[in-house]
Nucleic acid binder design. Structure first.
Lengths: 209, 209
DNA sequence: GTCTATACATCGATAGAC
DNA sequence: GTCTATCGATGTATAGAC
């Protein structure tokens, strides 16, 4: 029984890795089966179709995001703190599930056209609403500026955060925590050097390549 | 003779639109031919392969970017001005060539694995170096902060700018010029509201509102 | 320069033996 | 639960008539 589940999980993780690396349509069921170590027909004992495999990978992924975002909102911190926590949570999930993150970011347009991925749409709406709620709360209480539309800020920070999966290596010298700090600092305070009359604390950094 | 070129151009633009919308592997040569109004075999009189069509679309696209970036560098403005000009130039190119922009952003991983797209790699390196040169000049002269790595800032603003192709509609009420202004303001000065008297740390905990 | 016709490979998915 | 064998559809690309 445990072995059955293991085989199922192995199919899921193997498919996720290959689809993330080569793309959904470029990954064949035969290639997945070969990597798992079975014949292609055997996959259909565990899943009804190729799309069903990817659907389960993404559904689990989006559920994990929603669960962690719910914890952020439950903390009831002020908007700037919540925003930082959303960045941290997102980057941690991207580190834990890099393949699912890459698939979701790369195949978004393909998923929209495919039937059977409707459960994904509502999850995506929830996730967007979490970000927008925090951002708009900050605009409302005066901690965020109101001359840049909230939805524009959301889309800019969203792409910057999630697409970091394309270049960031969590196991390298530039840690996920460091990236989260820099993203938060950048999007809240900007890249322009602070004015000289204001005292600035320069934090020490780890060595970088 | 002019008609020949027109037919070739029609194939290029039609293929670009379809590949941008449905993805490279999801777009078949038969579908491109149908949209153009010819039979699939006829495409091979103008191009040696399907990949060659996409390669020409992307090569022209990257050449256009390099040409416009060269003008920005030639102005010899200060780093902050140059950075803004790079943002404006990039968004204008994305508006002029939305299909090529989408293809380049969406199919990057696929292009890396395919042979015959080597000319694209060097162009990409040039473009990256243009951004990094401007950013590092700003760090060197003190106008940009030095506690966030230049390459991190580059990748964050790059993704935010180019991936706006996924959501921004240049013909809508939120213009390309407006987006360029907001992106520049956000990445230089941040989304936090300007402090009224004394700068406040983000980490300052305040009671529930 | 376009069309007709088709070669040839590979795709997702299925049926039935074991 | 896996394998063997294969179906039917679809993919890129080609050959030769017009």
């Amino acid at each position: 029984m445990a072995e059955v589940q293991d085989r199922r999980e192995l199919i899921l993780s193997t498919a996720a890795e290959m689809v993330a690396r080569k793309g959904l349509r470029a990954t064949t069921v035969r290639a997945i089966a070969d990597a798992v170590g079975v014949f292609s027909g055997s996959l259909y004992h565990h899943f009804p179709s190729k799309d069903a495999i990817v659907d389960e990978v993404l559904t689990r992924y989006l559920d994990a995001i929603r669960a962690r975002y719910a914890l952020v909102l439950a903390s009831h911190k002020e908007p700037a703190e919540c925003l930082r926590d959303l960045v941290v949570s997102s980057l941690e999930i991207a580190e834990e599930q890099p393949h699912a993150t890459a698939i979701y970011q790369n195949e978004a347009q393909y998923l929209r056209e495919m039937p059977g991925f409707h459960g994904i749409q509502s999850a995506a709406a929830d996730i967007q609403q979490t970000w927008l709620g925090v951002i708009e709360a900050g605009v409302a209480d005066g901690s965020f500026r109101d001359d840049i539309p909230s939805w524009v800020f959301y889309r800019l920070i969203r792409d910057a955060v999630w697409l970091s999966i394309r270049w960031h290596r969590p196991d390298g010298p530039y840690s996920t925590r460091q990236l989260a700090d820099d993203v938060t600092a950048l999007f809240l305070h900007g890249f322009a050097a602070p004015a000289r009359h204001a005292p600035v604390s320069v934090r020490t950094r780890v060595g970088l390549a």
